[in-house]
């Protein structure tokens, strides 16, 4: 049976290890190559070891303004993280009961997860284009000066960009909430209610501490999925670009290890966030056991 360490057991171990190498090997390669010497190229061998390409990156190296793309992406990621946590937790609480349109909302959420991203990006871009046209139309009709002279577009990182990314992060948040409440013991809440706690008190002192580790998980999804999001953002960021969009442009134009240095940096930030999240997940869990 499966307990027995037969051929299958060893095959699976070997397969798993191969898969992990396949998963991490390429990333490891570019981390290594980003420390390429000043004379080195895009491939092995390493021509010495240096921070040359990181310095180049820091100076901007004549490429797009990476620094501000970085800041924009991190800012957007943090906003997405906060919104994803708040909206998913409140919707997750709501979904424990049936409410008006709850089935339809569930259907929308799951559909959003599997609809091809380019279609969604196009749809949101269209929506904002039509809003723009409407505003311009009203401006012309009623002779509103600032619209005629200054108004450009409502398409913006923090309007359309934010919304398009929410349709990607929120389904994950809601599914995590479902997973929590599937194995949630309701008797704690009932006890708290019987003792006279208000719904808010029950949420704050009973429910929230119990679900806290998973809320960290939702935050992790909210930040990282936004920080790396590309397909849905691609048509809706307006005049500004986030880091993944800049990166995609760089893949066709940059032919030096600068792009590896940039890759090492963004991957480093992702890893930092992931480890902080996983770390706090286990710390909160352990505290709870005590």
């Amino acid at each position: 049976m499966i307990n027995k360490k037969g051929k299958s057991f060893y095959f699976c171990w070997v397969f798993f290890i191969t898969f992990v190498i396949f998963l991490y090997g390429p990333t490891f390669t570019i981390v290594l190559l980003s420390f390429q010497g000043p004379e080195g190229g895009l491939t092995f061998p390493m021509n010495g070891f240096s921070f040359h390409w990181f310095e180049k990156l820091w100076e901007g190296g004549g490429y797009v303004d990476i620094g501000s793309a970085f800041r924009r992406s991190i800012l957007l990621g943090i906003i997405l993280m906060i919104l994803t946590v708040i909206l998913s937790v409140s919707a997750g609480m709501a979904f424990r009961k049936k409410f008006f349109g709850s089935n339809f909302l569930f259907f929308l959420t799951i559909s959003s997860l599997i609809v091809p991203s380019i279609i969604l990006s196009l749809g949101v871009a269209l929506e904002f284009r039509l809003i723009d046209e409407t505003i311009k139309f009203i401006g012309n009709k009623y002779n509103i000066d600032w619209i005629i002279n200054d108004f450009q577009t409502t398409l913006n990182m923090f309007s359309s960009g934010l919304g398009a990314q929410l349709t990607w992060t929120l389904p994950f948040g809601l599914l995590i909430m479902f997973a929590i409440f599937n194995r949630f013991d309701k008797s704690f809440e009932e006890a708290s209610r019987d003792l006279g706690a208000t719904p808010w008190q029950t949420f704050k002192f009973i429910v929230l501490p119990i679900i806290a580790p998973s809320v960290v998980g939702i935050a992790l999804f909210g930040f990282t999925l936004s920080y790396d999001e590309l397909a849905r953002s691609s048509q809706v960021m307006g005049a500004t670009n986030t880091l993944p969009l800049e990166l995609k442009g760089l893949t066709t134009t940059v032919t030096t290890p600068v792009i590896y240095a940039l890759g090492t940096l963004t991957t480093g930030i992702s890893f930092l966030v992931i480890f902080i999240a996983i770390g706090s997940f286990f710390i909160i869990k352990r505290k709870k056991v005590k």
Binding site: Y24, P26, T29, I30, T224, L247, T251, S270, V273
Partner: peptide
């Protein structure tokens, strides 16, 4: 790896 950048994973 799912939580890191897809573009970088391709470039690598």
């Amino acid at each position: 790896p799912f939580w890191t950048s897809n573009v970088i994973r391709m470039v690598s």
